[in-house]
Design a protein around this nucleic acid. Sequence first.
DNA 1: AATGAATGAGCCTTCATTCAT
DNA 2: AATGAATGAAGGCTCATTCAT
Lengths: 194, 194, 194, 194
Amino acid sequence: MGGTKHQRRGDTRRRIQDVALELFAEQGYEKTSLREIAERLAVTKAALYYHFKTKEDILVSLFQDMTRPMDELIDWAKEQPHTLATKQEVLRRYSEALAAASPLFRFMHENQATVRELSVGESFKDRMVVMMEIIKEPHMPLVDQVRCVSALFTMHAGMIALRDVEGDPEEKRKAALEVAIDLVTQAHGGTGGA
Amino acid sequence: MGGTKHQRRGDTRRRIQDVALELFAEQGYEKTSLREIAERLAVTKAALYYHFKTKEDILVSLFQDMTRPMDELIDWAKEQPHTLATKQEVLRRYSEALAAASPLFRFMHENQATVRELSVGESFKDRMVVMMEIIKEPHMPLVDQVRCVSALFTMHAGMIALRDVEGDPEEKRKAALEVAIDLVTQAHGGTGGA
Amino acid sequence: MGGTKHQRRGDTRRRIQDVALELFAEQGYEKTSLREIAERLAVTKAALYYHFKTKEDILVSLFQDMTRPMDELIDWAKEQPHTLATKQEVLRRYSEALAAASPLFRFMHENQATVRELSVGESFKDRMVVMMEIIKEPHMPLVDQVRCVSALFTMHAGMIALRDVEGDPEEKRKAALEVAIDLVTQAHGGTGGA
Amino acid sequence: MGGTKHQRRGDTRRRIQDVALELFAEQGYEKTSLREIAERLAVTKAALYYHFKTKEDILVSLFQDMTRPMDELIDWAKEQPHTLATKQEVLRRYSEALAAASPLFRFMHENQATVRELSVGESFKDRMVVMMEIIKEPHMPLVDQVRCVSALFTMHAGMIALRDVEGDPEEKRKAALEVAIDLVTQAHGGTGGA
DNA sequence: AATGAATGAGCCTTCATTCAT
DNA sequence: AATGAATGAAGGCTCATTCAT
């Protein structure tokens, strides 16, 4: 006993999430049908509705499970002073959070148009805006603000565009992080400034 | 005079493209139906099919019309020596091409998952890869390669994430360009000046 | 001069008929679209409407052009006495008429369901009925009536099913004719009867 | 009691097949729309798609259900010696199989052009070819080969052309069978008796 | 003699969703 | 915990046909 049956008991929900994320990331949200998800799991579409109220709900659940680390990061950051050191630490942690939630993040990035009018889209955008507020300062010269934005984007790019570049993913992540830290440092009048 | 009838004669094709781009950019490709496009133009769906063979064809036509400047840039760049000065000039021109084709570019960026399996997706990715090859050098340290990738992304970000930042679009573009040039310059070991 | 331009002047109508017959026979009436016909002729659909009022009209015109020999045969047969000799001669002529209008005939045979509710369908069926009346006699025993029906069908089969059998078409036609004549002869108490 | 609800439960699939066959036979495959089938059953089009993957699939299912007897006949015939007696027995059984599957057969005959490029078309033709191989011998004189082909066609004609002739269907079938047997017997050089 | 532009109707198909069991 | 059966809405696409030029 303790066989697969018991192990599988109750994990259908998770299996749905896994398959859904895989397919969403691969083909996009719209192009992935519930039929497809159900077929891959060898259950009926109706079974999905036992576990989730709507298609969007599956996405929401994925989102919630995977952005918790990011939310914690934001909460932590809000209590810290707005120093360069804090920002560097935020970038470091953000980079790790990103890596942990990598497939969802890729999905979010590649399906912005779709996701924009989903409830999840707002949350995602909100989080981005908060991150921006943490990293950049409104009084900075425009160029330095761009540097801060770019720092964040560089880490995203690290997960997306760098996939075609040779090399170990972890090393690429670190390289992206280094560049990002560089950028905010410069924005703060670091070695690159006057 | 010259009444609307004559003005409208023959420009239906362009009007379809205009409306389509607008809707594609706003809601995404999948979520935009031909019915919607047709309705907005006050023609029937069948009329769209007189001008374009398929829905995808509309997208392709947009793509072709708008990437020509970018192709010319690529062709020009290929004939230049791989010097830092060339790359800086490439970035400058790329920034302009981007600005000119801005809505389509935004669309491409926000619909990557969808666009990936459309014929147009390949072309887009190919172009990105070529741009990368022009900007970065394979023998560079990984961090500098990331800087180059980031330079390109910064300009994209300039059109997307910076929309929430206050300021004149043209100034933001220039700021993004400056940061991008900075990044490749650093990748080339330069201090930016000498 | 006297070039292709003059030769082609006025023969568009015939060219439409030719292509239409070819496509109708190959793919059926419903599955052949006017677009397809127009494309093969390198004209626009609208051009077809200059020459024919409707799609069905094209079919009607083909039918009229090609059934004239058969109508003449029927007219002739009606004036002859209902003797075995007459019937044999009718079969002979019918066989030739069939061969001459072979593609249309094949089409009619293979598209009965479609053609049934076209004006042309009635005409076709009428003609078949008349042919039957000429060949068979109402007072004949059922088996002999079947022989007569079969005689006609044998010749049709000669053009359709026999296409897979090796041999010269003309020889196959003659063989089918021979069997058909045999059948009516037997129906008339020939060698096969008492 | 035994209310219609329970009787109707689970037989929707069969009801679709029934209505479809009826309409296909009446108007042809192309001209019969799924809307029409659905309306007649008082269900939605989507319901048809729950039971069949495509429109063609409905036809395939009809075909499979109804040609099984014919396939059994073919299998049986292949194991028998190629004697005249065997062939006569084959014709007898074929005639019965034909009568049992009569509406589908009529449909196949009247929609050859359409059916030809459907998967079902090939199967149908294959079966015809096999039947021919069983009935006729390649070394026979051409005229006798035609007799064999004609024997098969006579039975088909028995179901189609004879519909206009007065008389009991079963008697007409027997008459057609008799003529068919006569034809193969003659093809084998027999006088019919000895 | 033929085209360019468009229409209205309809087609097959897919989707997310529901609900009784 | 999940299925079988079905729905309503919509989607992309094709067709025969029209008409001003």
